[in-house]
Each structure stands twice: as C-alpha cells, then as structure tokens.
C-alpha cells in the first residue's frame, strides 16, 4: 500500500517575471519534511528565484506557495514570522555583514531574536564555530577571509539557530574540490544530526546525489523532474540527459 505524504512546502503553478522576462513559468514542486531536496538546472535559469519564494524574499506574480498546506499569501504577518523563525538561508555570495567580525556575524540572529544571551550565546556560537573548524578566525572581518572560509561562516550563521528548514543557495560555488566535499559533508552531517529539511540549489552533480534524498530539475521555467536521485540518473528525458552528461564531461576534464 502506498502511503501518501503531505509536502511541507509546495509550489502550485508559480509564475514570476522580471521586467518582461519570464523566469518561472508554472512551477509545480513538492518538498518533504526531514529530507534534503536539491534543485538543479543550468546557470541563470531561476533556481535562486525559486528559493527566494520559499522564504518570502520574492512573491509570485501568480500561483501559490503553500507551507504545510496553507498558502503563504493568505497568512498573517505573525504566521509568516513564525515560519521565518524556523528557516535559515545561506546565500550564494555568503551575504556576511562586512562591518561585523565572524563571531558577531554568527551571533547576530541569536542576539537579535533573543534566542540566547551572555555566556550562553558565546558558548553556542563557539560550539558551532568549532564544528565548522573556524574557531581561530572569530575576530576576523569577512574581508579578511578566503571564499571557502566565508562559506563556512555563512553555514555557521545558518545553522547556529538550529532551524528546522535550511535553504542553501549554491553553497559550494567557487570552492576547490576538497573544500566542496567538506561543505557537502558538513551539510549532510548536520542534516543527519538535527534532521532539518534542506533545500539546496546547486549544479554540482554527481556530488549532490550523495547528500540529497530528492532532486528537482528546473528547465525552461518549469520543473521537468522531481523524484529520487536514482530515477533522475536513469531518466531518458533529453534535457536531463544533456545536463547530466555535460556536467559529467566537465567533471572528468576538471
């Protein structure tokens, strides 16, 4: 007997345009609780735009984004804030506060949302920093860090509040293969440990197959595939095959 699961987040015919350029053209997507779902697709196709709809940074022109079956557009301010408090977002360019030190960056969400204070706050920040191996740079400013370090600080800031939903916007872009694997491993470990729902935008295949339970592929403004990694790998859809094969060639050359 097949058990029907209710998605935690659902996109229902979502359309979004910018200045006459149509980016999302009827996206249908389901994201389930406790799993890591990775959205793959070519660069500039609208993956980050899709992600920003989940956290309310962008609103659809038409269609609905549902959270636990309820449309975000019909929720009150306090209901939306309650959802936001469950989420963390790791930006593609890290988006660290450049006038704050690494420690202050990681502590900011805890301090501003009054989740911890004093010694408890310091202990929690230092524990997260230790897990991500960035303890020695706590007094540095973002401008003094390498790209890989910035990514780890951004990851620490995203995880320090122990969110139940974490959105990763290309968390490994610009990293060398060793650092890339380290970040993927950290995400997988934290997901396993805390059981959060991970939603990741990436084009790092096949790497993301190892840390994702589900894959969705965005092509031409629509989701042309969503399902298990194994199903994607065996799919004969021409666009999917072209994407996987091209990426595999690039990986081999690299």
């Amino acid at each position: 007997m097949t058990v029907m699961r209710t998605p935690l987040i659902q996109f229902d015919q979502v359309f979004k345009s910018f200045g006459g350029k149509s980016v999302l053209q009827g996206v249908d997507l389901e994201i389930f609780a406790g799993e890591t779902t990775t959205i793959i697709g070519k660069s500039g196709i609208g993956k980050s735009v899709l992600l920003k709809h989940i956290i309310g940074l962008l609103a659809p022109d038409s269609g609905r984004v549902l959270f636990d079956g309820r449309p975000l557009a019909q929720m009150s301010g306090s209901q939306l804030r309650a959802i936001k408090t469950q989420c963390s977002y790791m930006f593609q360019n890290s988006a660290l506060f450049d006038s704050l030190t690494v420690f202050e960056n990681i502590a900011l969400p805890l301090k501003e949302r009054r989740l911890a204070k004093g010694a408890g706050l310091s202990a929690r920040v230092r524990s997260t920093m230790a897990q991500l191996d960035i303890a020695e740079i706590e007094n540095n400013y973002p401008a003094q860090l390498s790209g890989g370090m910035k990514k780890r600080v951004a990851l620490a800031r995203a995880l320090v509040t122990e969110p139940s939903i974490v959105l990763f916007d290309e968390p490994t872009t610009g990293l060398d293969p060793v650092r890339k694997n380290a970040v993927h491993r950290m995400i997988a470990e934290h997901q396993h440990r805390f059981g959060f729902t991970g939603i990741m935008v990436s084009h790092e295949i096949p790497d993301v197959f190892h840390i994702s339970q589900r894959i969705a592929m965005l092509e031409g403004g629509r989701i042309i595939f969503q399902g298990a990694c194994r199903e994607l790998q065996t799919s004969q859809h021409p666009a999917i095959r072209a994407f996987i094969d091209n990426t595999a060639v690039k990986e081999r050359i690299a």
Binding site: L57, K84, S88, Y89, N93, A95, L108, E112, T161
Partner: peptide
C-alpha cells in the same frame, strides 16, 4: 552597500 550585497535580504531571512 548592504542592499546590493544582499546583507539586507540576509536580515530579512533571519527575521530581523
């Protein structure tokens, strides 16, 4: 600068 480098978006995602 905070706006163009997505730091203000980051504040929103942190519910600040």
């Amino acid at each position: 600068v905070m706006r163009i480098s997505e730091q203000i978006d980051a504040l929103e995602t942190m519910d600040i």
